[in-house]
Amino acid sequence: MEPAKQNEYSESFKPKKPKPKINPKAPKKHPMGKKLKESLSGYLFMSPTIFTLGIFVVVPILYALFLSFNDVDLLGGIGYEFLGLDNYTRTIDDERAKIALLNTAEYVAIVVPVQTILALLLAAALNSNIKGKNLFRIIFFLPTVTSSAVLTLIFMWMYYPDGLINNFLSFLHLPTYDWLSNPAIALRSIMIMNIWATAPFFMVIYLAAMQDISDTVYEAATIDGANWWQKFIYITVPILKPVTFFVVIMGLIGTFQLFDQSYIFSGGSGGPNSSTLTIVLLIYQYAFQSLDMGYASALAVGLAILIMVVTVIQKVFFGEEKLHD
């Protein structure tokens, strides 16, 4: 039984092959009844999610959406004054929002591709027959299990002018840098740290997904004379497409929402010279330091729309695996 099943299974991954054999069965029995039943079980499966996200996530978001059209007073008796789109138009003249947007965009453009590719390659390497892969898996994962506050501390220690990294560079007679206080480099320092800390998270997801690829696909390719790299590019990468979609979207969301590191590195100011100012740091400053919740919410909604647009663009660009309808 088993091998036959696996063959069928691997068939389904061959690109764009029509699969007419399942559908004909469906219309036989009461089509309406089946559809209703499907919807019912769908909602049954979704009910804990709808309940929890609805109350604890969607309601707060709707509230934030409402706030974004108002001038808000939260402390000492809540008060609203409807402003229409004023908070949104205000972003256009906000010099700092522009800087934050540019910084964030640069950050996203560099970090997302690098960490995705790095995660995929690491996972592929650790999924092959390498000696000591268990040890590698544990070591590579270290940055992910550590809380970001501890990581940042470690990095600050390594980055400071007389720290580990510069010592190492000067030992190799390479130029040293002022990693933290030089505006031209500060954001790069955070990027390096972020890639290093996040890639293992996605590596594990790729690793888990690779377990679902059956050996027979590879065996067939081996018989056809494909080498490791060809198998990786033509078999592994296409099969992993849905997971890559996840990894890229989560990478986009995570990098667009960069906060922790720039907050700790700059002491909350976004300096030096706004070089580590990110959109969420700006949102935080407005929300908590000036308690300007209305404007902060408008920025947050703007950010969400931006992420959605980028998501749609990348979806068009890569194309997502169609649902098995």
């Binding site: 030089n182 505006p183 100011s269 976004g270 300096g271 030096p272 010279n273 100012l277 330091q289």
Partner: peptide, 18 residues
């Protein structure tokens, strides 16, 4: 707090000669 933020942000770059 707002003034402090902006000063801290810019003063560093003056220190660095930016």
């Amino acid at each position: 707090p707002i003034i402090m933020n902006n000063f801290d942000n810019q003063f560093v770059s003056a220190l660095l000669g930016e």
